[in-house]
Amino acid sequence: MSFEWPWQYSFPPFFTLQPNVDTRQKQLAAWCSLALSYCRHHKLYTLDIMEAQESPVFNNKKIERKLSMEAIQVVFEELRKKGNLEWLDKNKSRCLVMWRRPEEWGKLIHQWVSKIGMVNSVFTLYELSNGDDTEGEEFHGLEDWMLLRSLQALQTDGKAEIITMDDGKGVKFF
C-alpha cells in the first residue's frame, strides 16, 4: 500500500512557515501528523535532520517546494513538545521518532496480553517483539529500545514489572 499524502502536501503555502499565529499552529499540526504518519508507514524510528530535508516528506518535487531547514527544526521541536520526538545528540542533528508514544505502545501491548488471557504470566522481550504469537499485532517488530520504553511506561502505571533474567530481560504483566 503506497503512502497517501494529505491535501496540504500539494498546497504551496504548506512549505512556507506562516507568520500568522493561528494559521501557523494549524500548519504545524498538519506537518506533525504528516511526519508521524510517514514514519509509521515506512517504520522509521530515527531521523537525521540533514537527510530529512531531502526526504520526500519535506521536499515535494512535483510542486518544487521544500521546507527550509529552520522550518523543519520548528516542526521537530513541535513534535518534541508533543512527546513524539527525542533528540539523540546536543546538536539536534539526529532524533528518535515515536509515532506512538511509549505509553500508547504500552497500552497496546497490555490490551493484547489481556485479550489472550496471559495476565500475571512472564514474557521475554524477544517473545513480544518477534514471537510467533504477536505476529499480526502492531507492536510486532518494535525496536528493542522502544519496547523497553513502553514496558517502563507500563511499569510506572503499575501494570507490569520488568525482570532481569539470565539471557536478557523479561516482563510480567498485572
Binding site: 491535501w7 496540504q8 498546497f11 504551496p12 503555502p13 512549505f15 512556507t16 506562516q18 507568520p19 500568522n20 493561528d22 494559521t23 494549524k26 500548519q27 498538519a30 518544487e64 517546494r65
Partner: peptide, 23 residues
C-alpha cells in the same frame, strides 16, 4: 487579510504569493 487569517503565504524563489487560507 493574512493577519486576520483569511490568507496564507507561499514564500518561494518565485516570490511571495498569497493563497486562500485552507489550513
Amino acid at each position: 487579510a493574512e493577519k486576520v487569517g483569511h490568507l496564507c503565504r507561499d514564500d518561494s524563489v518565485e516570490g511571495l504569493r498569497f493563497y486562500p487560507n485552507l489550513f
